[in-house]
């Protein structure tokens, strides 16, 4: 059944089977591939998007539960915090393969939107749901702190 989702500020018509996770609606139906598939069971964070400003795992979130919600993906995430995080990621060359980094950035932006001066423990808590197999964790930690400095 076709429904309307508000994604990155735009209304998008979606006609996917009932219960289809937001991840596959974004990727297969809307061709928005920045949100990644890594595990399908909310364990790796590669599919992190924001729903009403909070980080959510798109791989286990049925798209049809999101009517009326503000959905933001890596492609559409804007603002001072997102700019600061992207700038810090580029300045530090944080990504290696980059596949998980959409999710890492979305998680880091959500953290810094709540807390502009995170401690190491705050970073551990906010970021430990996002796996990076290239193990860029040290660079991510540094870049979050660098981004925080500019906010």
């Amino acid at each position: 059944m076709a429904i309307t989702l508000k994604i990155n500020g735009q209304d998008r018509q979606v006609d996917a089977a009932e219960g289809t996770p937001l991840l596959w609606v974004l990727r297969d139906h809307l061709k928005m591939n920045g949100t990644r598939f890594g595990c399908g069971v909310a364990q790796c964070g590669a599919c992190t998007v924001h729903v009403d400003g909070l980080p959510v795992r798109a791989c286990i979130t049925p798209h049809d539960a999101l009517e009326g919600a503000e959905i933001t993906t890596i492609e559409g995430k804007q603002g001072a915090v997102a700019d600061a995080v992207r700038a810090a990621w580029v300045a530090s060359d944080v990504p290696q393969c980059g596949y998980c980094q959409s999710g890492q950035i979305m998680a880091a932006v959500a953290l810094l939107e709540e807390n502009t001066d995170p401690s190491d423990e705050d970073i551990d808590t906010a970021m430990s749901g996002n796996i990076c197999r290239c193990a860029t964790y040290m660079s991510i930690r540094r870049a979050i702190k660098d981004a925080a400095q500019t906010l």
Partner: peptide, 21 residues
């Protein structure tokens, strides 16, 4: 030298095997 791929990665630019259409 900074990586040439990173400016695209931070925008979620899709260039992986999973992203082919």
């Amino acid at each position: 030298i900074a990586s040439v791929t990173v400016p695209r990665i931070v925008k979620g630019d899709g260039a992986y095997g999973m992203d082919v259409e």
